[in-house]
Computed example of a mutant assay.
Amino acid sequence: MYKLASISALAFAGLASAQNVIDVQVGSTQDAQGGIFQFIPNNVKASKNDVVRFRFTGAPGNHRDIVSVVFSVTQSSLAKPCDNLENGFDSGWVLIPTAAAANPAPEWNLTIIDDSKPLWFYCKAPLPVPHCGIGMIGAINADDTAMASFQQTANGNKNPGQAVGALVGQGASASAPPGPLTNGAQAFGVPSATAASGGDSGSGSDSGSTPSPTAGDDGNGALTLYISGLAALFAAVMGITLA
């Protein structure tokens, strides 16, 4: 009886300490409300040791000419929504072809270390228009007033910070880059455990403004294709005027 009671107590303690997982969708489709460039939801509540699981499920949409899109989850600040936060967390770039919208989608698990203040993040992709400037920003534990200010400040930003951050950020950390990378999904500018470049990227003039493909690049220049060609494709399909 004593052994059973002890085992039950240990099992209960294990359940009590289990991590809560909160899902955030990275990107959507062109036909969805809010369009392609958004986090869903864009503001979540999380406690210390909770895991915010970013799921790169967003594909560019159903139009046959749109073949891929790049997203990131990059830490920023309330004052500078579209600039890399010094020593901030960063998923690196994840390229999602339409075929990769099937499963398994790449995921990135961010564990909350400090829940006493809001954590802010954005997508640093610059094309076809800067994602951050058209609403691809998000927060953890932000109140409505601060979130509205964050959105307003980000609106229209045309020069997002591009520096590669780190897996371990301020108030939250990840233990691994996004994965699995299947069905043509690729990762670029994958961060190390700690920031290599350091410092706030400011207006995006950091020397790492165009991340280089990792060793996992298939040699077809997927990131180059995205940057050089997809801007025109998106603009034509979505009626966007590029400044």
Score class of each variant (00 low, 15 high):
residue 210 T to Q: 02
residue 42 N to T: 01
residue 152 Q to D: 13
residue 238 M to N: 06
residue 104 P to L: 14
residue 15 L to Q: 11
residue 39 F to P: 09
residue 129 V to W: 10
residue 89 F to R: 01
residue 203 S to W: 02
residue 24 V to K: 06
residue 170 Q to P: 07
residue 105 A to V: 13
residue 214 T to C: 07
residue 198 G to K: 11
residue 150 F to L: 15
residue 43 N to T: 10
residue 140 I to A: 03
residue 218 D to S: 14
residue 105 A to I: 09
residue 17 S to A: 15
residue 193 A to V: 06
residue 64 R to Y: 10
residue 181 L to G: 07
residue 13 A to I: 15
residue 87 N to I: 04
residue 45 K to V: 12
residue 152 Q to Y: 02
residue 243 A to D: 07
residue 235 A to R: 03
residue 75 Q to C: 13
residue 210 T to I: 15
residue 28 S to C: 02
residue 111 T to H: 01
residue 35 G to F: 06
residue 25 Q to N: 14
residue 127 L to D: 08
residue 65 D to S: 15
residue 71 F to A: 07
residue 156 G to S: 05
residue 27 G to N: 02
residue 9 A to K: 10
residue 27 G to Y: 02
residue 58 G to K: 02
residue 131 H to K: 01
residue 163 A to V: 04
residue 185 A to D: 00
residue 60 P to T: 11
residue 96 I to S: 04
residue 45 K to M: 08
residue 97 P to A: 06
residue 116 S to W: 08
residue 25 Q to P: 05
residue 145 T to M: 12
residue 235 A to T: 08
residue 218 D to W: 07
residue 65 D to N: 13
residue 32 A to M: 08
residue 94 V to G: 05
residue 80 K to E: 00
residue 112 I to V: 14
residue 87 N to P: 03
residue 218 D to E: 03
residue 147 M to D: 01
residue 228 S to P: 05
residue 147 M to R: 11
residue 157 N to L: 06
residue 91 S to W: 03
residue 32 A to R: 03
residue 170 Q to M: 04
residue 141 N to M: 11
residue 107 E to G: 01
residue 67 V to S: 12
residue 27 G to Q: 00
residue 142 A to C: 10
residue 153 T to D: 04
residue 176 A to T: 10
residue 192 S to V: 00
residue 60 P to F: 10
residue 233 L to Y: 09
residue 135 G to C: 11
residue 12 F to G: 12
residue 115 D to K: 05
residue 237 V to P: 05
residue 216 G to V: 09
residue 93 W to E: 03
residue 174 A to V: 08
residue 94 V to T: 12
residue 2 Y to V: 15
residue 66 I to E: 09
residue 113 I to V: 15
residue 91 S to A: 15
residue 8 S to H: 04
residue 112 I to N: 04
residue 228 S to I: 07
residue 10 L to R: 08
residue 6 S to V: 15
residue 146 A to R: 08
residue 211 P to Y: 02
residue 40 I to Y: 08
residue 134 I to L: 09
residue 111 T to Y: 05
residue 144 D to Q: 05
residue 75 Q to A: 14
residue 55 R to A: 13
residue 24 V to D: 05
residue 78 L to I: 07
residue 140 I to Y: 01
residue 2 Y to Q: 04
residue 51 V to Q: 04
residue 90 D to L: 08
residue 234 F to S: 05
residue 170 Q to V: 15
residue 110 L to S: 07
residue 55 R to F: 05
residue 103 N to C: 10
residue 48 K to V: 13
residue 219 G to P: 06
residue 199 G to W: 04
